[in-house]
Design a protein around this nucleic acid. Sequence first.
DNA 1: CATAAGTTTTCGGTATGCCTAAATACTACG
DNA 2: CGTAGTATTTAGGCATACCGAAAACTTATG
Lengths: 237, 237
Amino acid sequence: MKSQLSSSTEDYVKTIYAFTEWQDAPITSSQLAARLGVANSSVSEMVRKLKDLGLVDHRPYGAVRLTEEGRRVALTMVRRHRLLETFLVNELGYSWDEVHVEAELLEHAVSDLFVERLAAKLGDPSRDPHGDPIPTAEGAVPRIDAHRLSELDPGHAGRITRISDENPDLLRYLAQERIFLDTDVTVVRRKPFGGPLVVRIDEGGGSRDFDVADEVADAVWVRSGPAHPGCTLEPGT
Amino acid sequence: MKSQLSSSTEDYVKTIYAFTEWQDAPITSSQLAARLGVANSSVSEMVRKLKDLGLVDHRPYGAVRLTEEGRRVALTMVRRHRLLETFLVNELGYSWDEVHVEAELLEHAVSDLFVERLAAKLGDPSRDPHGDPIPTAEGAVPRIDAHRLSELDPGHAGRITRISDENPDLLRYLAQERIFLDTDVTVVRRKPFGGPLVVRIDEGGGSRDFDVADEVADAVWVRSGPAHPGCTLEPGT
DNA sequence: CATAAGTTTTCGGTATGCCTAAATACTACG
DNA sequence: CGTAGTATTTAGGCATACCGAAAACTTATG
Ligand SMILES: [Mn+2]
Ligand SMILES: [Mn+2]
Ligand SMILES: [Mn+2]
Ligand SMILES: [Mn+2]
């Protein structure tokens, strides 16, 4: 059952999974190549290998989709990655913009024992420093019910539950502006002529207004409703 | 200054260093091959590469010796390995026979930042779970003044300061027999006709006698003198 | 519906790091 | 001091994972 995949294989599978985590369409070869920073030809070769391993479904010139087994492997890697990020922030004092690169390598080096011991030590967290859900060891993914800040109408209030970790510079900027996970925000209005979104931020009893650039509004996810939402689990397949 | 060596390169350098850590003679090609579990021919190729990188001195058919630069790299890897082992035991509840394999992989995946943050969190320890000295970030090696149990005369008393981590089975056996680092022992006598060494073990107010097989007596290092010896540092070169 | 534009795959090649088998160099002994 | 035996290096190959360029296929457009 433990087939000992190479780190490249693990990264391919993880990247295929990540693409459909917050949207629906399956990933294409060139998108995969772009995300992995390799040539299209390299993807063609690896996808054939992944298919031979039974990790993806793929017809020539078609999109790449994970099989059940591929999804299982992906969730294992995502769990590792996010637990490691949590460890780096909670225990080693990393900031949330520094953790991704480190976790990207460590995830391939740790054993299953290490991961489970670490999870226990961290108190079995259900989300990582960016608010991304941490799959359980059994492959269940905590459901996070949130919308992009960019999609919300004026007047909508909620709590930041996820910030895309794709751009470290953006994360650094937000930290500097004292905007974190669990910060409460209200959409005030959109400035005219394609201007930025204005949000009100609750902070230490008072509040302040903040202009949100479009790229930022796309990266920040907000959940309305109760202050500390319980996480519901959807079973792994 | 950071030249990004491959994990194989790092393991070669570390193994060359380790060979002379507790004895004098430099390592030969075949010894290196045996320790790394690779063919002699692989060593010949890699040693040429290491020489090109300026990490070792080597003439054809001669022994392999680290250069100053090689020693610096080796000490970096040894520091990583031993800090990771310490972390696994102290923070994740590993036993001392489980840590080596895990650290062997992790040492190549962690960053300098990770290592220094980890060292700080662990309180800058000067020895690992097996009593092996942890080099400082500057490359100074805590000097451990100890002798093999097998070399001591009857009547000699001391404290266990190091146990070779080469054989996990031996470590497991010793743990089961409640013999740890910092256990106080006195050599009682050697049983005749090449029989085992008998040592007295101080334990919880009382004491017990224990028969030590030759392989064990070679693996256990004892330091006489004060109960908690201060560590002296020898500067890295 | 034909062809241009874009995407994907195939092809030939590079770099690591490993292997076995063969050649070569040391060393120790008669 | 020559030679047998051992240690080491060289030669030829394999597997992985990457590349750029060329060929093959899909799709979009006029
Ligand atoms: Mn990775
Ligand atoms: Mn994350
Ligand atoms: Mn290693
Ligand atoms: Mn150790």
